[in-house]
């Protein structure tokens, strides 16, 4: 085996890449026809076979171009640029039917077989070494195609997650009207920069809409208050004030209170209450609508 390989080096074609490129251009039509019957193309372009064939031609052209550049191993080759979007749409269509990424990858890999067969059929008189050099170049090229598809599929997946995150941002920040002139947002989960921006905007909007005089930010459901979260809270408080309302932060749990002190955060100017109920009581009293209590002393912080 090893001997063959060293001996073969002298007889390998100068540039197997460009030879594969030329082959792809010659066999463009046959290959596109064969690919149209492969699952990847057949299941995406279900309405008209013509479309599948046309999509196949575009991919063959791209591969021929990449091979012609002699860069069969380079997923960043500009030859892929024109097909990237099409490939991404195909992979996404397959993923939507419930296919795992590895199955999609296998389907891309399956395209290699017909290409390989056509290539070998074209070289009946060539030496074994020559054939091997060409099929190796083709294999590498098809592997690169697979990489390109997976890359685009992944970034598609990331875009999907981004969209879902965006949707979550919106549903996760309901502003509740607690009373005439009092609105509240119960914050739940991570208060990152994007989320806190949404919180601030929705809160300010409802302060205006409801002509609220008090806005309560309840952080019972926020697991960690670090300097960034604190900064977001303080910005929101300041913005609410600018709208002419007063902001109360409630739900600071004891462990978080201690942590805030160690962190060195100064919430001095921020009105805080232990619970949402306490914050509501505070706001009601300030509005002159005090709560009548059945038992005295019930106002203590919980």
């Amino acid at each position: 085996m090893a001997e063959h390989e060293t001996a073969a080096r002298h007889r390998t074609p100068e540039n197997p890449g460009s030879e594969v490129g030329a082959f792809l251009r010659r066999r463009r039509e046959q290959l596109a026809q064969r690919w149209a019957d492969e699952p990847l193309f057949r299941t995406v372009f279900t309405v008209a076979r013509d479309e599948a064939v046309e999509a196949g031609r575009v991919v063959v052209d791209a591969l021929a171009q990449v091979a012609g550049h002699g860069r069969v191993e380079d997923p960043a080759d500009p030859g892929f640029t024109v097909v990237r979007e099409q490939l991404s749409r195909m992979a996404a269509a397959r993923a939507r039917t419930g296919l795992t990424p590895s199955r999609v990858s296998t389907e891309v890999d399956a395209l290699r077989v017909p290409a390989d067969e056509l290539l070998v059929a074209e070289l009946p008189d060539a030496s074994a070494e020559h054939v091997r050099a060409c099929t190796t170049a083709l294999t590498v090229l098809m592997g690169t195609l697979r990489l390109v598809v997976m890359e685009t599929a992944l970034s598609e997946g990331e875009a999907l997650i981004d969209r879902q995150r965006l949707q979550l941002l919106e549903v996760a920040t309901p502003v509740i009207r607690l009373w005439d002139g009092i609105v509240a947002v119960p914050l739940i989960g991570t208060l990152d920069s994007a989320r806190s921006q949404v919180v601030m905007e929705t809160l300010l909007e409802s302060v205006v809409d409801q002509q609220a005089r008090f806005a309560i930010l309840d952080i019972t459901g926020v697991p960690t208050v670090d300097s960034l979260v604190a900064q977001h809270l303080m910005k929101t408080v300041a913005a609410v004030r600018l709208m002419g309302a007063e902001c109360v932060v409630s739900g600071i749990r004891p462990a978080i209170a201690q942590t805030i002190v160690h962190l060195g955060l100064d919430l001095g100017t921020v009105i805080t209450r232990a619970s949402l109920a306490d914050a509501l009581g505070y706001a009601l009293r300030r509005l002159g609508a005090d709560i009548v209590r059945a038992a005295p002393g019930g106002a203590q912080a919980r």
Binding site: T224, D226, A255, I256, L263
Partner: peptide, 16 residues
């Protein structure tokens, strides 16, 4: 719980 919260918060700062 308090020590957990402190550690998580410190980790959050340093990781950021």
């Amino acid at each position: 719980l308090v020590e957990q919260t402190k550690l998580v918060t410190a980790a959050s700062e340093l990781a950021r």
